[in-house]
C-alpha cells in the first residue's frame, strides 16, 4: 500500500505570552519566563492509503492537536506533514486547496460543530458549491444524495440542527465532510458523545463509507474498545509523544510499552466480571512541566535511573512495530 500521509518530526508548541504585569516584573529583575506547552513533541508517523489508524491517549496527550494539524486547521511549529509525498505547507495555492478538501475532519460535539442558524441543506451544500464539486443548480440533488449516503432522510434538508437528535446531528457532520469528496477523514472523538445504540450505528456507517469510498481514517479516541473494533493499526500517545505503534492485534494481545499495558489493563470489558481494579499510580503530569527522560517514568513500575535521564527513542522492535522504551534494550 502506498503512503498517503506522512508526519515527520511534527511539533506543536503553545506559548503563553507574558502579560503586562509579568513583563514589568521581568524588567525589574524577577525570574519570569514565558510558559511553553509541548502539546505535540516530534511525532513521526506514516499512514497508508485505505488504512484505519486509531490514535489513543488520555486527556492532554496531544492527540486532538495532532489531528487538527493533519486536517490543516493548525500549523505545526516544526516538522513536515506530507500528503501524497508533497509537503503540505510548501504547496502552491491550488494544490493546497485540493489537499485541504481531501482531508476532512469530523468533530466530537455534534452540538457545537454545526451552525445553529443554517439549514441542513446549506450546512452540507455550502462547501461543495463554493469549491465547484457541484453546481448551484444541481446542489439540491447532490445534498439529497449525500444525506441518503449517511442515512438521513433528504426530506429533512430544510430543517435546522436543533431539530435533530445527537446521532442525527453527527450524521449531518459526517455528510458535511463527505460532500467535498474527501480521501482522508480525521475523526476526533467522533462517537464519544453518542448513546451506545447510536454509537453502533455510526461506527457501522464509518465502516461502510470506508468500503464504498476507499477512505483513509485517522480515528482519534480515548475509548480503547472502539479503537480495537475499528482500527487496522493503533498509535498510543503520552504527553505529546508517541510511545508505541503496532497492528491492532499486537497492541491488544501483546502490548510492549508499559504505558500501553497499564492503559489496557484499565479498560472495562463485558467479559471480565468482578474485576479487581489495580490503578496506575499517580496522575498524568502537567504538559507545562513534563518529567525529564521518559515522560512515563514517574508512573512506571519498571523505571530505572536511565529512564529518569534519557529520552527513549521510538525503535523498531519487530517488523511494523515500534515502541519507545529503554526496557527493549535488554
Amino acid at each position: 500500500m502506498s503512503t498517503i500521509l506522512e508526519l515527520d518530526g511534527v511539533t506543536k508548541n503553545f506559548v503563553k505570552r507574558l502579560d503586562a504585569a509579568a513583563k514589568l516584573a521581568r524588567r525589574l529583575g524577577a525570574d519570569v519566563k514565558e510558559e511553553v506547552v509541548h502539546a505535540v513533541d516530534g511525532v513521526s508517523l506514516k499512514i497508508a492509503a485505505g488504512e484505519v489508524v486509531g490514535l489513543v491517549g488520555e486527556s492532554g496527550c496531544g492527540k486532538s492537536t495532532l489531528g487538527r494539524m493533519v486536517a490543516g486547521i493548525m500549523e505545526p511549529t516544526a516538522g513536515d506533514i506530507r500528503y501524497k509525498d508533497r509537503i503540505v505547507s510548501a504547496m502552491e495555492k491550488q494544490a493546497g486547496r485540493e489537499t485541504a478538501l481531501a482531508i476532512q475532519m469530523i468533530f466530537q460535539d455534534p452540538f457545537a460543530s454545526l451552525n445553529p442558524r443554517m439549514r441542513v441543506q446549506d450546512i452540507i451544500g455550502e462547501a461543495p458549491i463554493l469549491h465547484g464539486v457541484t453546481s448551484r443548480a444541481d446542489a439540491a440533488d447532490y445534498v439529497a444524495q449525500v444525506m441518503e449516503r449517511v442515512g438521513l432522510d433528504p426530506e429533512y434538508r430544510k430543517r435546522y440542527p436543533h431539530q435533530f437528535s445527537g446521532g442525527q446531528r453527527q450524521r449531518i457532520g459526517i455528510a458535511r465532510a463527505l460532500a467535498v469528496k474527501p480521501e482522508f477523514l480525521v475523526c476526533d472523538e467522533a462517537i464519544a458523545a453518542l448513546d451506545v445504540s447510536i454509537q453502533a450505528q455510526v461506527i457501522n456507517l464509518f465502516m461502510d463509507l470506508r468500503e464504498d469510498l476507499d477512505l483513509t481514517y485517522l480515528f482519534i479516541s480515548h475509548d480503547l474498545s472502539v479503537v480495537e473494533h475499528i482500527s487496522d493499526r493503533v498509535v498510543i500517545m503520552y504527553l505529546g509523544r508517541i510511545v508505541e505503534i503496532a497492528s491492532t492485534e499486537d497492541i491488544f494481545d501483546s502490548a510492549n510499552h508499559p504505558y500501553t499495558q497499564a492503559l489496557l489493563n484499565e479498560v472495562p470489558r463485558l467479559d471480565v466480571r468482578g474485576f479487581d481494579y489495580q490503578p496506575i499510580a499517580g496522575e498524568i503530569p502537567s504538559p507545562l512541566d513534563p518529567p525529564p527522560g521518559c515522560h512515563f517514568h514517574p508512573r512506571c513500575p519498571h523505571a530505572t535511573a536511565r529512564c529518569r535521564e534519557e529520552r527513549p527513542q521510538l525503535r523498531e522492535i519487530a517488523p511494523g512495530r515500534v515502541s519507545a522504551c529503554h526496557l527493549n534494550d535488554g
Binding site: S197, A200, I203
Partner: peptide, 24 residues
Amino acid sequence: RGLLGSVPGHNTRGKRLYQIPGMT
C-alpha cells in the same frame, strides 16, 4: 440483547456491530 450486541471490543474486531434500528 441489542445493547450488548452493539458494544464494540475484542470479539467484534473487523465485524459489523449489531445496531438497534431507530432511536429512543
